[in-house]
């Protein structure tokens, strides 16, 4: 599936308006905000349609997947938005992660568990908030929308240390900048090591850099470190996305793709947007002087000033 899809679902008492932008959306946040109620309404509509008394507007079929025969049920769903409620432990399994990778569906998963087997984006982790309410035929209808749990965080001044998730081209790039600026730079050699490395660092002001497109499962424990360290995260979609955005690569279509990536990224082909941007960069630099890959990328780039 490609594209962003708006879902409006309502009954006499509740109205939800949400937009899903890529293959995995995570719902979390406080208790009693209506996550389960939303998914129950989708389930009732998928079974009984308009007869349920629920109105659902979306250009894609919306269904609910539950434990039990989830693998068999998932085989029947195509080009659909699949909702999964809390309490379905299979979402943490490798089998489920493999199914998502091969699926042409989008998934909306209500869970506070960090799903380390799935590469979801930091931008697609949401809570539900009530935006307004009004009297509607004797009942008070509550309007609910999603809000991003992790918002952009500005870094003031110069860090003492930069920790880079990547150990290849991105690390080479940031290491070169740090050398110029007199900043310590270290690679975490993988996103799962970032938590430990930030915590053990003796420097006061730390800037951690990782690919936001797949950093979702790490985000909660990474943010929890703010209780311990003065750490800020710079989480662009990916290093390749940064290069594509830098203006080094010229292409008539690139601007449109970067402005609306959801419209161009087929979820079945690219489990995570970072993979799409890597493929896009390789494609657009294949015949150019900039033809670059992995560690060679960094050597070709001009260095920005922090």
């Amino acid at each position: 599936m490609k594209g962003s899809h708006e879902i409006i679902i309502q009954n006499r008492r509740l109205r939800y308006k949400i937009t899903v932008n890529r293959n995995i959306t995570i719902l979390r946040g406080n208790s009693a905000t209506g996550k389960t109620t939303l998914i129950e309404m989708v389930d009732e509509y998928s079974k009984d349609g308009p007869e349920s008394g629920i109105q659902l507007r979306c250009d894609k079929r919306c269904v609910v997947l539950s434990r039990g025969n989830w693998e068999r049920d998932l085989q029947d769903y195509h080009d659909s938005i699949v909702f999964i409620d809390e309490g379905n432990g299979f979402v943490k399994s490798i089998a489920f992660a493999e199914s998502v990778k091969q699926s042409d569906n989008y998934f909306v998963i209500a869970t506070r568990d960090s799903l380390f087997n799935l590469p979801y984006s930091i931008d697609e982790i949401y809570g539900i908030k009530n935006t307004s309410g009004n009297r509607y035929q004797g009942t008070k209808r509550i309007y609910s929308e999603l809000y991003r749990i992790y918002n952009p965080d500005a870094f003031q001044g110069k860090p003492d240390k930069i920790i880079v998730e990547d150990s290849n081209s991105a690390y080479e790039f940031w290491r070169a900048i740090c050398a110029k600026e007199g900043i310590v730079c270290e690679t975490a050699k993988g996103k799962s090591n970032l938590f430990g490395l930030v915590q053990k660092s003796e420097e006061n002001r730390i800037l951690a850099i990782a690919d936001g497109a797949a950093f979702g499962p790490e985000m909660e424990r990474a943010m929890s470190l703010k209780n311990v360290k003065n750490v800020v995260y710079f989480l662009p979609e990916s290093f390749e996305w940064l290069i594509l955005r830098s203006g080094l690569v010229e292409s008539a279509e690139l601007g449109e793709i970067l402005a609306h990536p959801a419209d161009f990224i087929e979820s079945k082909k690219y489990i995570s947007w970072e993979r799409f941007f890597t493929a896009l960069l390789i494609e657009h630099t294949r015949a150019e002087r900039l033809s670059i890959h992995k560690k060679e990328q960094a050597k070709s780039l001009p260095l920005p000033v922090i």
Partner: peptide
């Protein structure tokens, strides 16, 4: 809510262990 159900289970079954990740921070 799921979070409240978990709180009531914890409160009334002190000898049992429940998955409290069904509770938001407001719990």
């Amino acid at each position: 809510s799921g979070g409240l159900k978990t709180l009531l289970l914890i409160y009334n079954n002190p000898d049992m262990i429940f998955n409290a990740s069904t509770c938001g921070d407001n719990c």
